[in-house]
Design a protein around this nucleic acid. Structure first.
Lengths: 249, 249
DNA sequence: CGTCGTATTGAGAAGGGTCAAAAGTAGTGG
DNA sequence: CCACTACTTTTGACCCTTCTCAATACGACG
């Protein structure tokens, strides 16, 4: 990761960027990219670090280049709900808004491609490529959030855990550009507590359900953070969803 | 309502439209409105009617002119979660998508201002006013969905009910263009079952909690569908949120 | 007045939460 | 290299909120 930062922390050409084809800049042409470069800088955070606090002034927006972060919301008494998971190519920040709505925390080491907000907003107004891609991504995020509503509102603890693993497995498979199926190994860059916050459970329940899935052979744990899924299909059944390829994240 | 339809079902001028300043067309100029008119038609539905089924082909998008509708998602075994509530000025449908992702049901009599999808998409590509307004609305919806995640994941049944009433009261107050506060009367165009589906509860639990709030004097029911809120502030306390003006819908 | 859909109420069960303790794990410094 | 500390995870016992199943009441409408 330190190497990545060194590699990318200067004004780095976009053509070797791993998220070039999926991020907010995906549809930009050469001139537009050049324009973006003038407002661009990289920042990295270590796992556990807070990237932005809810309510703080935010004068950048960003694309996640690598790693993972969580958007988090809280009730006054401290109850916490994660309301979004940012994975590589996902967009962070809201154009046109001064103050951050959510606390953003790195759940793994993470590298961000940041754009100064004001110039980015200007470019957004002037270049349909950028605006249409952002609209598309926002609509996708809205769909994901709605899928998550179904999970939080109606799924059992076991189904919630299975669903999370299925989603991460799908993302993992998508990176290698293949259909998820059969045996898959995924990295789980989340503590039990973070999983609980995402799933609307307590960390004890998460731990118990992970234990249950493990005892029943649906998953195997290598260490605490590496999960081996012997049969992806069986896990999908446990998640309660239909067996097709829905649930974008 | 029948009168509204008669009034508006022909190609009606936009300048008397009640949602003109807040809908997707809010920022459009005269030419753009004229263009929109060529692809526009009105449709009305009665309470309870399904407007679109999930998976159906959908060749229009629409603005809600009056009334209310719910977006609904289901698990295979029939468990149902409402994932969005469409109120006047809200946008229905996803440009660029052929098939509906959610089932849309009218929860009250409703009037839609529909646009044929293909021409609308073309106009969207060509007119930044329209695209930027849609982006803005989509970002707002995403924020609402995320607030709802917090509600579903972390709030108690009582807090959920109170939150729903608070949200409807805020919308009601916004229509009259005043700060919500003190005594408010709201129309509840939702059955107990619809409320349950929205809040991730069973209808029995909804009924019991409504009863509890009533016994404690936090709400008064006139009939089943009209709710009188003696003290808006007290209800906000019950909702678990901070006392300021958050929670957009 | 009967019927159908909606809402309320009750009793009992259960899933998940709470509180508490033990067991891993990972750094840190002697 | 090992002991010490701090954190994360697991496990256990108990309890409470909400769900489930069932009966009853209400209200609109023919």
């Amino acid at each position: 990761m330190a190497a990545d930062v060194a590699l990318l922390s200067s004004q780095q050409a976009c053509d070797i960027c791993p998220i070039r084809t999926r991020a907010v800049c995906a549809h930009c042409d050469g001139d537009e990219l050049a324009e973006l470069e003038t407002m661009k800088y990289y920042r990295s955070f270590e796992a556990g670090q807070v990237i932005v606090w809810a309510g703080d002034r935010m004068d950048f927006v960003a694309s996640v280049v690598s790693g993972m972060a969580g958007l988090t919301q809280q009730l006054e008494d401290g109850r916490t709900q994660m309301v979004g998971l940012l994975l590589p190519s996902d967009f962070l920040g809201r154009p046109g808004r001064d103050l951050a709505s959510y606390t953003v925390t790195a759940t793994s080491d993470i590298l961000l491609c940041c754009f100064r907000r004001k110039p980015f907003e200007k470019l957004l107004r002037e270049t349909p490529h950028l605006a249409s891609r952002l609209l598309e991504m926002t609509l996708d995020e809205l769909d994901s959030a709605r899928d998550w509503l179904l999970l939080l509102g109606r799924k059992s603890a076991r189904e919630k855990i299975a669903s999370l693993l299925v989603i991460l497995a799908r993302r993992e498979a998508a990176l290698i550009r293949q259909r998820p199926g059969g045996r898959i190994v995924i990295e789980l860059p989340l503590t039990r507590e973070a999983m609980a916050d995402y799933l609307g459970l307590t960390l004890e329940t998460v731990s118990r359900q992970m234990g249950a899935l493990k005892r029943e052979g649906l998953i195997e744990l290598e260490g605490k953070r590496r999960v081996n899924i012997p049969s992806f299909e069986n896990l999908v059944v446990e998640s309660g969803d239909d067996t097709d390829g829905g649930l974008p994240v």
